[in-house]
Amino acid sequence: MKISASKNMLKRFRHEFIILAIIVVLSITIGSINSQFYSVGNIYSLLKSTVIMGLFALGSFLVLVSGDIDISFTAIGVFCMYVTSKLVLLVMPGAGIVLIMLIAGLMGVLLGFINAVFISLLKMPGLIVTLGTGSMIRGFLLTFIGVRIINKLPDSMIAFSKITLLHKAQENGHIVGLSIGFVVFIAFAILIYLALKYTVTGRAVYALGGDRVATARVGFNITKVQFFIYGTVGFLSGLAGVTHSSFMRNGNPFDLVGTELSVIAAVVLGGTSITGGKGTVFGAVLGVFLLVLINNSLIMVGIPSYWQRAVVGIIILLSTGSVALQERRSRGV
């Protein structure tokens, strides 16, 4: 009984295990070439690098599971970040970080709802809608709000980037800590996991991706579910935007947009099906880890950083290709 259950687990999370194995093998390889890799400082900095992509990926993951695709989230992120920063500086420069994140998040929710209106009420495909809203949001930001980099952010945002936990002394005597941003990312990952697993709306996200018609027939309110999905994407994007500018210590309205396809790639790498209904939060998080590991560690093993994209491309092709071949074989074609 126990054995069959664990076998079942293996089978159901096979993809996640494969990605995990790749991460482990890659880490061991990199570490054996350059022992610096194992240093606490490096690991902490790697983890910090997963935060922005990770927050975006959680939203992207939700949309993919529901069987659609969203490419406007980076535009929403940069919009919320820039507008919130400006607003806060203008009205209440002393605002705390939680308030700032809430403002940005709620702004994101509103923008996400615009997507939801088109997608659920007018029944337009997500790709087209978010192509339109994404370029509108960024265009609006750069035309009507500003193109200048904000060099002096609200104090609380700068302070946020300096908050660290789990302090450790490195060999050189430097004390390093884990960025609180990573904790925020993981906290939201857990929250999304719980929401998907233990709420009826969460199950509806999977149901929607599995069979849309059946979802409606069973009596789910698809409109409500889609507003939940795109609202959440907006919230996470707003959060990602603010965190990004906090890490960068400036508010650059030209940032983030252009990374959306890499984020989707990370989610897909983690085993989420692009046709909907399948995927786990754990997988999506692992996908982000893997991508960040490749992006940040090639240089440690002496591979020049300009190899990054090619390597990422090959990994995407190998991983999706092996899944595709497996499915082909199991269908016996």
Partner: peptide, 18 residues
């Protein structure tokens, strides 16, 4: 190979640019 077009070309986009 049977990879979904959007994924296959997402990968080759990275590869070619890479």
């Amino acid at each position: 190979v049977g990879i979904t077009p959007i994924l296959a070309t997402l990968g080759t986009m990275q590869l070619f640019t890479g």
